[in-house]
Write a protein that binds this DNA or RNA. Structure first.
Lengths: 345, 345
DNA sequence: CTGAAAGCGCTTACAG
DNA sequence: CTGAAAGCGCTTACAG
């Protein structure tokens, strides 16, 4: 591996000077700058980022975490169906982070206590962390805030001197769903959603409830079903649910990936979508247009979320710029899984 | 942050000794070992892995790469529908790597030449790399082999003094598909598969061809359609294909994610699956049991692949153990997207 | 068994 | 503008 020492020798300067031209320091003679650049090119030099991260007061590594079931292995969690939406979003985060010259990494930390999670993060010298959090009560949220590690939470509402958050306007999205179903004549609507320890879930429920309440539609608690949110679990839970109740004309699923499982349970039960029952999702994952029928859902603006989260994290790290919570508008997308409520029932 | 220096002081030993007990060096007095452990616990010490990776002759970081369209941003690539199968596999890789005390990272490297890709990898001090490669002609494959960076290729056939590969037995899986369709009476079978620059694709085609040829079924080149392999592209390509030809009773899709797109195009064209046309996929991604109808496919053993790849990479890095290419058996899973060939046509 | 010293490859005050 | 030196937090021969 070629080092800055070799570049310095070839250019006839010191390592300090090489470092300075690399980091765009101001006071460098044009002559020196040019000689260094020439040497870098000739040698194919690329600075050792591990050494840089150790030497600099602040590293250029951003950690991406995903809290799920108290697991620390972020990459593994990302592969669970319930997190497919985040995969779409992470693509934008990745791109955005690369553009500003930082490295993104997903620390695979063993399951452990919050304090040790923090220490592992520090041991890896993360400059900051983007935390995809699905459970507001996860103790690591508070631990990150206390530790004053620059953090942007996505879908959890952590705030502090070095923390802020970004999320879609789930409430507004849910209201659109409520209005859409209402307009189609639905009155008895079932909610198959994630446990309400997930704030996203709560907002989605609330948005629908608000609209229905204003329209004078009574809320039937028996039609509210909190289920775990993988496609598999949604499928099984729906089968069980259908064995108890069928007196509804529409289902609001907590997410698209849940809707995919619900759809199958509905098919197997001989219920047609949307003729017998309408179904809506949330998120607009790539696959929601490939279900049978294609899914009516609420689109989250993945790009705005991803870029916004990165921008705020940098602002937090560099202590300059906008660090206010980011709320991104979301938008109902009507496809073919919703239709008029059946007249008889 | 607490450093090894502080631990040393509290334990009344030198930093060297702290380092030795941490790394399980043999010759350490029980007394010293115990004092150090006590100090570590008292201080909540966790070694700085960045410093470790710099100081050690060999780091404990494993890079995960994904070559796709000459892009370097691995995490972004992973989120494309065409790579959903790899997401499932990566979960096992992640877990396995964490178990042996290594860190997994997905370098987000800007699009660049092979040489500079190699340099970036070295600049990040990767001990080795697991390369998910989808195009055998990608120049980075050869570059990695030449550079003698320990590498395990998945789905590309790179071999060298420091390189080996792991993949499913796609040929055998494809034979099972061919036999299954043959047994159901299909004779005119369309292949909508990835471009043959992808060796996986070639093997899958070949396996089916072999079986059909042995059965005396002629191969119609007009029924072979090489299309890009995202769900989207498969959908659009299928629409186009259906406008030209419909004289087939079965479609072999190059992958499950392609089959999902194909399924939609078939629905829209008014063709019923499997009554009018049977459809098979490959991979058995999580979602293949949630399509309508659930997909007949070939299951890849993700766990065996992931674990096997990691085991071989470690063998390559430590220069001891089995580094022979790993071929994992795969297995037809019959679900509801295949049925008897329609009698009339 | 253990410590002092050199080294991993950078960056950054400190002088000049 | 530029270099010599110290430092980032570890590990590992080298002695003893």
């Amino acid at each position: 591996m070629v080092t800055s020492e070799q570049v310095a020798q070839l250019a006839g300067v010191s390592r300090a000077t090489v470092s300075r031209v690399l980091n765009g320091s101001a006071r460098i003679s044009d002559d020196a700058r040019e000689r260094v650049h020439k040497a870098i090119k000739a040698l194919g030099y690329e600075p050792n980022v591990v050494a840089q991260n150790l030497a600099r007061p602040r590293s250029r590594m951003i950690a991406l975490g995903l809290f799920h079931d108290n697991e620390g292995l972020a990459i593994s969690q990302l592969g669970r169906t319930e997190n497919y939406f985040y995969i779409d979003m992470v693509r934008h985060i990745d791109r955005c982070v690369a553009e500003i010259g930082y490295d993104l990494f997903m620390p695979s930390l063993p399951r452990s206590k919050p304090e040790s999670y923090i220490r592992s993060l520090q041991a890896r010298r993360a400059a900051g962390i983007i935390m995809l959090a699905v459970d507001q009560s996860d103790p690591r949220i508070e631990a990150l805030i206390q530790a004053k590690i620059p953090t942007v939470f996505v879908d959890a509402m952590g705030e502090g001197s070095h923390a802020t958050y970004a999320q879609s306007n789930h409430l507004e999205g849910a209201r659109q769903v409520g209005e859409h179903l209402l307009a189609l004549g639905h009155r008895r609507i079932a909610f198959l959603i994630e446990p309400l320890s997930n704030p996203t879930s709560t907002e989605r429920l609330l948005g629908c409830q608000q609209v229905l309440a204003r329209a004078g539609v009574p809320f039937d608690p028996g039609l509210l079903c909190q289920i775990e949110w993988s496609t598999d679990e949604a499928y099984h839970a729906t089968k069980e649910f259908l064995s108890r109740r069928r007196d509804f004309t529409a289902i609001v699923a907590g997410s698209d990936m849940m809707a995919i499982g619900i759809l199958r349970a509905l098919h197997e039960a001989g219920l047609r979508v949307p003729e017998d029952v309408s179904l809506t999702g949330f998120d607009d994952v790539v696959l929601s247009q490939y279900t049978t029928p294609p899914l009516t859902t609420v689109r989250q603006d993945k790009e705005a979320l991803g870029k916004g989260a990165v921008q705020r994290l940098i602002a937090l790290i560099e202590e300059t710029g906008d660090v206010s919570p980011l709320i991104v508008p979301s938008q109902l997308v009507v496809r073919e899984s919703t239709g008029p409520a059946p007249v008889s029932s």
